[in-house]
Design a protein around this nucleic acid. Sequence first.
DNA 1: ACGAATTTGACATGATGATGTGATTGACAA
DNA 2: TTGTCAATCACATCATCATGTCAAATTCGT
Lengths: 213, 213
Amino acid sequence: MIDLTVIQVAIIEDERVVLDSLMAFMGKDPSINVVHTGYSIEDFLSSAKGKKTTPNVILLDVNLPGISGIDGIAPLKKQYPGVNIVILTTFEDSDHIFRALKAGACSYISKQTSLLLIGEAIKIVAKGGAYMSPAIARKIVGYFAPEKKKPKNLTERQNEIVALIVEGKSYKMVADSLCVSIDTVRSHIKNIYRQLEINSKAELIRKSYNGEL
Amino acid sequence: MIDLTVIQVAIIEDERVVLDSLMAFMGKDPSINVVHTGYSIEDFLSSAKGKKTTPNVILLDVNLPGISGIDGIAPLKKQYPGVNIVILTTFEDSDHIFRALKAGACSYISKQTSLLLIGEAIKIVAKGGAYMSPAIARKIVGYFAPEKKKPKNLTERQNEIVALIVEGKSYKMVADSLCVSIDTVRSHIKNIYRQLEINSKAELIRKSYNGEL
DNA sequence: ACGAATTTGACATGATGATGTGATTGACAA
DNA sequence: TTGTCAATCACATCATCATGTCAAATTCGT
């Protein structure tokens, strides 16, 4: 018989050092019981068959071999409907954060966070709450705020070009739309890429969709 | 001379008991300095003229006489651009929460929260972070998740490839990631484009970000 | 065991994209 | 008046993408 007052936790983490310290810490906490671990999503799911205990909380790394932690959220929730996913990672950019949340993660915690706080976060999500690291929570609230977009000093013209590119247009189409030479568009794109520190259309589109410009 | 290491806090709260206990607690914390208080938005703003100190953080009640705390956020931010607004309230319904966030609040805390945690929250927002009570954070993450999955007819492998492309990878990088030939990736992409009736990477990324697959 | 769907791969070609160097023009500020 | 900056355009070159045609190996359901 499983003690329902004890939180059943699973951990998916490929770094031994991190996994070991998490295990060691939780082993000392009587209210937490680590029932299952894995080095990757695939590893975890394949070995999940033989388990009879269902985790309440899954502590999930993002940078995993094979399927990424974020892409792994869906299969994990399929295997364990209603499980609480806690992302534990070093990636703190908006892109990763929002993709994780959209996939159904309920907490997103920086690996900088102390073990004590991670333990607290687990207890919080097990009770139906959610915990976010301060810097991450700030990015999330920033999503809602009317945001005075002061960010990327992009020129009016540059924003115009970005808008067309994001719509899926080619350089040629943008040039025609704006009635300028395709070389002009190229020139603008080069400057935009340099200013945004990116080097592909894909990244530009992603940034745009994440409101990062 | 104002000590910049000390957080300048203002409090707007109409309940004497609450205000007094907040003041008493913060008076004991050397890193917090309460510079201004008010019983209402109007009261606070009118008496703000005579003050020379600018608050870093404003602790704001929602249920105030006159202008509500939420409607007061805009004028407060106009008076003190860049100030961090911390909502402290008993209202925990989604409506109040999201209206406050949209108005520019960066933290939303239940009045059930201990004075200790409220103090922590103030320090967190002063450092550029954000803190949410667990139950409130859960409602916020819930805002992102309710994505109804209408999976397109794409194959597992195809979805894998789309995921990598959307991350900004080139065909070559995708091929390497999946340990297949670049021609195989090309082949998949061709099929994906035909099935989705698109013809550019940009459109693929757009559809992906719009949850259209 | 048969056929359909999936996955893999090769070869080819024209279009588009990424990046560099360099030049001209007009606007606005020091 | 002299800069700086935004916007315009011209080459140039190599990488990547979009598309086509064809085909072998694999998986899977009936």
